[in-house]
Design a binder for these strands. Sequence first.
DNA 1: CTGAAAGCGCTTACAG
DNA 2: CTGAAAGCGCTTACAG
Lengths: 344, 344
Amino acid sequence: MTRIDDVARLAGVSTATVSRALRGLPTVSAQTRRRVLAAAEQLQYAVSPSASRLAGGRTGAVAVVVPRITRWFFGVVVEAVEDFLHQAGYDLLLHNLGGREQNRQRLLRTANLHKRVDAVMLVATPLHPADLTTLAALDLPGVTVSSGTDVPGWPCVRIDDVAAARTATRHLLDLGHRRIAHISGDPDDELAFTAHLDRRHGYHEALRAAGLRPDPGLDVESGFDIAGGTRATEELLRRGDPPTAIFAACDEMAMGALTALRDAGLRVPQDVSLIGIDDHALSGVLGLSTIAQPATEQGRLAAEMLLDPLCGPAGASTINAAGSPVILPTRLVVRDSTAPPRAN
Amino acid sequence: MTRIDDVARLAGVSTATVSRALRGLPTVSAQTRRRVLAAAEQLQYAVSPSASRLAGGRTGAVAVVVPRITRWFFGVVVEAVEDFLHQAGYDLLLHNLGGREQNRQRLLRTANLHKRVDAVMLVATPLHPADLTTLAALDLPGVTVSSGTDVPGWPCVRIDDVAAARTATRHLLDLGHRRIAHISGDPDDELAFTAHLDRRHGYHEALRAAGLRPDPGLDVESGFDIAGGTRATEELLRRGDPPTAIFAACDEMAMGALTALRDAGLRVPQDVSLIGIDDHALSGVLGLSTIAQPATEQGRLAAEMLLDPLCGPAGASTINAAGSPVILPTRLVVRDSTAPPRAN
DNA sequence: CTGAAAGCGCTTACAG
DNA sequence: CTGAAAGCGCTTACAG
């Protein structure tokens, strides 16, 4: 392994100069820099990250925490973040909570973030008050994406979940539906999200604005994924007097609903209309109407907001550092799964 | 930040002893260990990874390289690997090539792996001969998952792609199909996979075994994803005289085919049968017949094979270290997208 | 079983 | 613009 001394010797300068030249600091003459770069190239020198981190105090890594990397939204967000971070020269440490409370505790309580990263991105991660204290003690910059828990001092990028749900519900109302069910995530999940709470809220708001009273019998909770959508819909149908339309809290739940409806012999949209939120990569294939949310943009923007203060001088952030959350727009996409209720 | 000296002072021992006690080395008396642990706990001490890495030479991190984290197979593999690595106390550095050759070069050519990780996992990553030289120079342990390029000395876990394709094709043949098309990935992709080559091979084998000659007109290449499946199927239909069945190289391509078939007014399976490979989370929802492959198991097993030699004494690997690849079984899953051809 | 001391390979004031 | 030297916080032979 060639070290910085080898480069220094070959270039005929001190290790301090090699260090400066290689990092592109301005305090090196063009000629010296050229000599150093050539020597490093010739020796195939690569700086030791551990040594650099220990001496410099920066890790060059960012931790990204997601509930489940296998879900559409999180996969897309991570892809966008990964691209941005690597282009900026940062490593990405992935933490997938996998829906298990135990994993969140391992991440936060033990020292798995401590001195390991320069910043943290929390995607849709709910935090207990004790977790907030832990994070504050870590004294790291961070950003939150999507609903979850806001962290004081961290910027946040997300959509307006309440408004998205309102739009979805209103679309069904506009088509003439009155018995509109809602299927969403279970607050008893070990790792409860908060997105589905906001979405239920928007559903209720839209119903009330149309003069309807939310019917608890039309409101079923289950897991926030495909299987959860199937279970919730089965439960809904078991209750009798099925709705003419279902608003699923996310596209994956809507897809699960599709299975349950088909198994029950109900056609979409002739018997039941169905709408979700996301615009999942497969929603087009399934003809699913939905509220599209920009996942790539949320990831990219969050990465940008996270790195921005890390690069520039302290406090020189050019982007909305903390303050109010950045809300990205959503949009109604009408496909084949929503239609007026049967006139009968 | 409390350092190891603080703990040593409080426990009344040397830093060497603290280091040993905290890492669970056997050469520490039970009593001393207890005192050290208590002191560390009391001071909320967390070892500095950078210092530990520099002094000890181990990074405690593993790089995982995938083509696209948003694709079903890679998401599931990463989820399994993440879980295993974190349980073993390793960090996971995620590299998502995003289908861009440039990203692979950045990863391999520059020093992004150099001294940063203890091991590398390459999932479905094709390698040029020059890349193999680079990897060899890195002198890191590694493992490959799924088709890609084998690396000398690294173990490999995968399925038998040829056999899987043969089974899929034979299923269609058994149903009575004779005009069986194949849609698969494009070798002109910047980052060519090899899985689809093996799968085409199996398709050809099954046809020949049934006494049929592969028809180039029924063999269309496009991207190895949803959009690619749609494009390939559109091209197939444009050629006229449509097949009675389509074997897609992966479920995501089959899903894309579904859209194209629907748009062309063709019903599945009445007009065209369709089968893929994977057993994607949504294949059940879509009623797609497929060849299921164990993604979680491939990830978990690969992680295990990777870490095993890192923990035990050198060469004491208890698992099939290198040698022949570990082949995991696939299985035919018949749903609603395959049926006998119309008798006409 | 434990400790004193060297050393891992960089970066950063400080001085010039 | 450049260099000598201290220091980042651990681990590891080595000695006892």
